[in-house]
Design a protein around this nucleic acid. Structure first.
Length: 282
DNA sequence: GACCAGGAAGAGT
DNA sequence: ACTCTTCATGGT
């Protein structure tokens, strides 16, 4: 089995990275091996100290997917501006933002609205099983995440079994809009954050929160700061007490929070967001 | 049953 | 440009 040795001084935790809720298609076996489908490949990967044992793709793909080429220490130093984020960094040290395939990320976060993580995972697994291509590995069958044309082409009837609820027409509509994935990807990639955000929000089912998640997880624009109910709660408690407690995230509040975060945490506030989110439950 | 979950669209102001 | 309402599904 191929091995990557993580350079000394580069924090990395596979469990934190795959378990924090940024990705929806990875499963952890009791022995600590993670299994996931990325692109056309089934990946198995396990961490023992500073060694990563993996199969299914090249070492370069692993390094890129898990952002092991990103120098994490200066990023953590730059966002470590107060005791609250400091505690989150201590607790989740080694968490890295993953480089998610942009289209899969887009469809995933359209499916994520107003839902909990187990439900989101089931929806995305169902999309893959219905429309993706089967891939065999060690005698088991897995499914790639489907291209937009595969979802758009088969009509709404096949989509119904995925039980997306009111999100179904959004997934279908956006699948129809993104006909040329490569071209669409390059367009978004070439735009600066604010413009990419506006462009993403033209897609059906993509509002401010989903747009920020896609830009952060799919396009590595680290100044994005997605605001969901958890992040709002955390910021209300520790940073912005003037926000009303328990209220829904209005549009105006959303902007107020993300602009505060950008100024408070700096250019890498997206990393701060993920550390705060990952540490949310305690 | 009520309430919540990595919200967004559409209608009405 | 800002509220208010509705939306479908599953977990607790």
């Amino acid at each position: 089995m191929p091995v990557i040795t993580i350079p000394p001084g580069q924090p990395f935790s596979l469990d934190q990275t795959l378990g924090c809720g940024q990705v929806f298609r990875w499963d952890r076996a009791p022995d600590g091996t993670w299994l996931g489908v990325v692109g056309r490949n089934v990946i198995r990967i396990r961490q023992e100290g500073r060694r990563l044992m993996f199969s299914g793709v090249s070492a370069d793909v692993i390094r890129s997917y898990f952002s092991l080429d990103v120098d994490l220490v200066p990023i953590l130093s730059s966002i470590d501006t107060d005791p609250v984020i400091h505690a989150a960094i201590e607790r989740c040290r080694g968490l890295r933002l993953v480089r998610q395939p942009p289209w899969e990320c887009t469809a995933s976060y359209i499916c994520s609205t107003n839902s909990n993580i187990p439900t989101i995972r089931r929806r995305i697994a169902s999309l893959a099983e219905q429309f993706g291509k089967p891939v065999k590995s060690e005698g088991q069958t897995f499914y790639t995440f489907p291209e937009p044309s595969c979802i758009a082409g088969k009509g709404q009837d096949n989509l119904a079994v995925c039980r997306l609820g009111y999100r179904q027409p959004y997934v279908h509509g956006t699948s129809c809009s993104v006909t040329d994935v490569t071209c669409w990807e390059e367009t978004i990639r070439s735009l600066p954050y604010e413009e990419a955000r506006k462009e993403m929000m033209k897609l059906q089912g993509v509002g401010p929160k989903a747009a920020d998640c896609i830009i952060l997880f799919g396009f590595q624009k680290y100044e994005a700061f997605p605001v969901d109910v958890w992040i709002r709660r955390i910021l209300q408690k520790h940073y912005l007490p003037e926000l009303a407690t328990g209220a829904p995230v209005t549009n105006r509040e959303y902007d107020r929070i993300r602009i505060f975060a950008r100024e408070h945490f700096g250019d890498y506030c997206g990393w701060a967001q993920e550390y705060l989110y990952a540490a949310r439950l305690e």
